Simulated assay, not measured.
Amino acid sequence: MLAPSALLSNAAAAEPPLVTIVALCHNHVRFLAAALNSIAAQTYPHLEIWLVDDASTDGSPEVLRRYAAQHPEWHLLLLPHNVGNCQAFNQALRQSRGAFVIDFATDDVLLPERVARQVTFMQAQGPRCGVAYHDCELIDEQGQHVRYHFRRDAQGRPVHPVPAAGDVFAEVLRRYFISTPTMMFSRPMLADLGGYDEALAYEDFDLWVRASRNWQFGFQDEVLTQKRLHPQSMSRKAYRPADPYVASTIRVCEKALAMCRTPHELAALATRLRWELRQAVRFGNGAAARRLFGLLRQTRQTKPLDYVAGALGLVLK
């Protein structure tokens, strides 16, 4: 017969894992109620909620204070100065305790079964799975359906195959395929990486590269999140004048080059660099084009047309 202490130990081991949701807000007042209501509607009960406002100027802090008062177990962190997503997330992460962590932008929406379904999936993948992600519904500013993240064929399969599980390092170098709001992280993976790189203007590409080098990713073929599309989204600013993200993209590509171990991985990185180079040329960003072409040459995977783009970069400002 087990001693009482052993029974308590077994019961503790069987407890569902705590999940931390870091809800990051910067001027999301129009969408904040829908986002926070979607947290409160989760069917998974073992949650630790951090409401983090990154110095909003649109009334968001007042809404966050109201929800924190309605949910005393939620944590409220109002930052006095705008520090950006990476640092804001890390501040909450360092104080949190969850075995799994979700970075939740408060212009998006979690469907009610999101956390419960994703925890079950992560546990099934095993301890080497550092990131789980899934399909999502893209919605407009009014919350209306636009499309799904993954285009699908008549049989409902993604048109472009999605890595189902395992090592995705070369794939994250080659192309964008993960919908950022759908990710759930394991705490050991985040601890291994030291959280987000606070020197960068955005986090997802860097996290994919660094995490996928030593951790496995898992794709869950379900729609559990709604991602909102609006004019302030990062993708609408890429490579335009005063783009705040291009320097971070180049820095991540530099990191990736140092991590590549095989010709296959270098070829994947060259595909990414080639695309970024052409974007830089397209929008007249000569400084970025020159740096990207220099990285592309270091992969030893250049093609004749790459030199045309590189030459155009030399004549652009």
Rank of each mutant, 00 (worst) to 15 (best):
N214L: 14
A124W: 00
R272F: 06
L266F: 05
L316F: 10
D192S: 13
C25L: 02
S233Q: 15
R114P: 00
A55F: 12
R175N: 00
E113Q: 15
L305K: 10
I21T: 01
L266N: 06
F217N: 04
A6C: 04
A287G: 09
L2H: 09
S96Q: 07
V63P: 00
D167L: 01
R282S: 13
P241W: 01
E48K: 02
F104R: 04
F177E: 01
L76H: 06
A154G: 13
V52L: 04
D197M: 00
R174E: 14
V159G: 04
T225H: 13
N37T: 09
Q87Y: 05
R114M: 11
P80H: 08
P4W: 09
R152C: 11
Q142N: 14
A170V: 03
A199E: 12
Q216D: 15
R278V: 05
R97G: 10
V29Q: 13
A311L: 15
W74H: 02
T180N: 12
L257G: 02
C25D: 13
G194R: 03
S56D: 09
A99K: 13
L93R: 05
S96V: 08
A88R: 03
D192G: 02
T302M: 11
R152A: 09
R290K: 08
H230S: 12
Q142M: 10
E203L: 06
D221W: 08
Y245P: 03
T57Y: 01
E73L: 10
T43Q: 08
Q118N: 10
G130S: 03
Q279Y: 10
L93E: 01
Y148C: 12
A11W: 15
A289C: 03
S5E: 14
V29M: 09
A247K: 08
D103Q: 14
A211R: 01
G143S: 04
V252T: 15
K237S: 12
D53V: 05
P112T: 09
N10G: 09
D192K: 05
T106H: 07
W50T: 01
S56I: 06
E141V: 11
T302E: 12
D58Q: 07
Q155A: 15
T20R: 03
L305T: 12
Q42W: 09
P112N: 04
R66G: 13
R66L: 09
T106M: 12
E137Y: 01
V308Y: 13
L77Y: 04
F177Y: 15
Q91I: 11
Q226G: 00
R210D: 07
A268K: 02
Q155R: 15
E254F: 04
P158S: 08
P161A: 11
P188G: 03
A267Y: 08
S9W: 10
T182L: 02
H149K: 07
Q142D: 14
L269N: 02
Q118R: 02
H230F: 15
Q220I: 10
V246S: 09
A154L: 12
S9H: 12
D167I: 00
M189F: 00
R97E: 13
G284H: 07
A14E: 10
F104C: 08
A256Y: 01
D206T: 02
A88D: 06
A247N: 11
A165R: 14
D103N: 15
L292Q: 11
A3T: 13
Q232M: 14
S186E: 00
A199R: 15
E62Q: 14
Y148P: 00
L257P: 05
G166E: 02
V115K: 05
A41K: 08
A170L: 01
D221F: 07
N214K: 14
L138H: 11
